[in-house]
């Protein structure tokens, strides 16, 4: 059984997000293998949702393509369990509350444990609504990942204190997607987190270039990249995995 925290044992962590089934699960599988072989420390498996309200246009597009291609929660769990035989780095699922609620949180977390998925990220479940899901996650050894945003201010402390796995630090306001500049004072947010927990923190939202990754990794324990990877899938389709491998290598090299 892998642990989310294992992702942070290999220096600064590089976390890759991929929407499962965009354009098909076979391509997703090869993309994940390439990412893992080229230095990714954790894979966020995106289960697509019809109305991904926290996503920018790039990841929204991946969600629509994947659903149009016919993936379902069950197909993704079957896929993840087969992929486990080839890839050993930790997996976390990233999806929306209704996907888990509709499947049944209990059954969802049980399947996570069966597939050795050790983390769950739900961007529409803030601290106030966390218990409903976390009580079930804990039962099955799945870390429900807490998010902290630039607007969290006095909430940082209480969120950090109850966090497990890692803390997802949202770099900027708005939705997911590449940004030219990140102006949030990440360092002071991380300082407050460090005073309240030893759980590692990774920064996501808007990171696409090795320079940005290096800069963010200096302030935190890892970086999360989604849209830049999805863009390669959007551009190269089934041929994307090798490009994703090259990209992940460049990003991981930049933060080593």
């Amino acid at each position: 059984m892998s642990k989310v925290s294992d992702a942070f044992k290999n220096g600064k962590a590089f976390i890759a997000f991929i929407t499962c089934g965009d354009p098909d699960l076979e391509t997703t599988g090869r993309a994940i293998e390439e990412a893992a072989n080229n230095g990714a420390d954790l894979i966020e498996l995106g289960i697509p949702f019809s109305d991904p309200t926290a996503e920018g246009p790039v990841i929204q597009g991946a969600n629509y393509r994947a659903l149009a291609g016919g993936v379902t929660t069950d197909k993704i769990f079957d896929f993840a369990s087969k992929l486990r035989k080839k890839v050993s780095i930790p997996f976390a699922v990233m999806t929306y509350a209704n996907v888990v609620y509709s499947y049944g949180a209990e059954r969802f977390c049980e399947r996570c444990r069966e597939c050795d998925i050790s983390g769950l990220i739900l961007p529409d479940v803030p601290f106030e609504e966390k218990d409903e899901f976390d009580s079930v996650c804990k039962k099955f050894g799945v870390d429900l990942i807490s998010l902290i945003a630039p607007t969290s201010s006095q909430r940082v402390e209480v969120i950090a204190k109850s966090a497990s796995g890692f803390i997802y630090v949202v770099s900027s306001l708005g939705v997911t997607g590449e940004r030219k500049e990140i102006n949030t004072d990440i360092r002071s947010i991380v300082d407050i987190i460090r005073k309240n927990t030893s759980v590692p923190c990774a920064v996501g939202f808007g990171i696409s270039t090795p320079e940005q990754a290096k800069n963010m990794a200096e302030k935190a324990d890892g970086v999360i990249v989604g849209s830049a990877i999805i863009r390669l899938l959007e551009k190269y389709g089934r041929k994307a995995p090798s490009y994703i491998g090259e990209y992940v290598k460049a990003m991981k090299d930049a933060i080593r």
Binding site: P126, L147, A149, T151, V170
Partner: peptide
Amino acid sequence: GGQYIPETLMNA
């Protein structure tokens, strides 16, 4: 009911 929204909006 409840408040199932991104952390970014919670303080708002």
